[in-house]
Amino acid sequence: MATSLGPGAPQSAQQALIEIDSLTKRFGAFTAVDIVSFSVAKGEVLGFLGPNGAGKSTTMRMLAGFMIPSAGTARICGHDVQADAIAARRQLGFLPEGAPTYPEMTVLSFLRFTAKIRGFAGSELRDRIDNALSLTGLDSVRLQTVETLSKGFKRRVGLAQALLHDPPVLVLDEPTDGLDPNQKHEVRNLIARMAPDKAIVISTHILEEVDAVCSRAIVISHGKIVADGTPAELEKLAPSGKLDDVFRALTTQAA
């Protein structure tokens, strides 16, 4: 695991842009996330794997500052997501689970809204939006309202919003869910192209995706990290050498 650097650490190529430190979330007696710690450096694409209800979305929500952790903390580019929330969120592109967007807005006005919130104006605002639209292939539907779009397009609107400000940290909760195979391929290519300059976390339960885009994978089960390594390292854990079998072995034994 990469070593954590303090908030005041100097910029370097290998600096951990995401640092998650003993993050815990309890709902009543149920512990959804149980002392999870890891960090992600620039250039890494971390696949966050686990069965439904394992705590993937809860961890990502705490990282994005949407949920308040019961214990522990997280930092984005050295900014604490609770104490220094605004600075942390400026460095973050976040795709929430299910890619929520305002249904009555057009794609263009929705992106214009998020761009203005992020402080862009004038020609830069137009350039950023045009760039995000073309990266996600939304040019043809820019004037359609979001409610009229298919599931795949809606997902890409959420993705465009997360990429718009070219953030150093991307946290994408199931970015390819609901996309057809061609669209999945495009999104994976997009992630691979952005990877060298960013720290990216994607959650998924599609295991082929891990091989396709991730440089590292963490398997989480019942709120605890049960494996952390490169996809190749994880595959060695099962005699068959298949990620499917590793995943099943890791996430069912704890139950």
């Binding site: 929500r61 994005a64 500052g65 949407f66 929330a85 605004i86 600075a87 969120r89 400026r90 973050l92 976040f94 929430p96 689970e97 299910g98 929520p100 967007t101 305002y102 249904p103 998020t114 919130i117 992020r118 959420g158 919003q161």
Partner: peptide, 14 residues
């Protein structure tokens, strides 16, 4: 209901 609160409150706003 629409989940947009998660989007709105994870933008850099208080």
């Amino acid at each position: 209901r629409q989940g947009t609160i998660e989007l709105l409150l994870t933008l850099p706003i208080t």
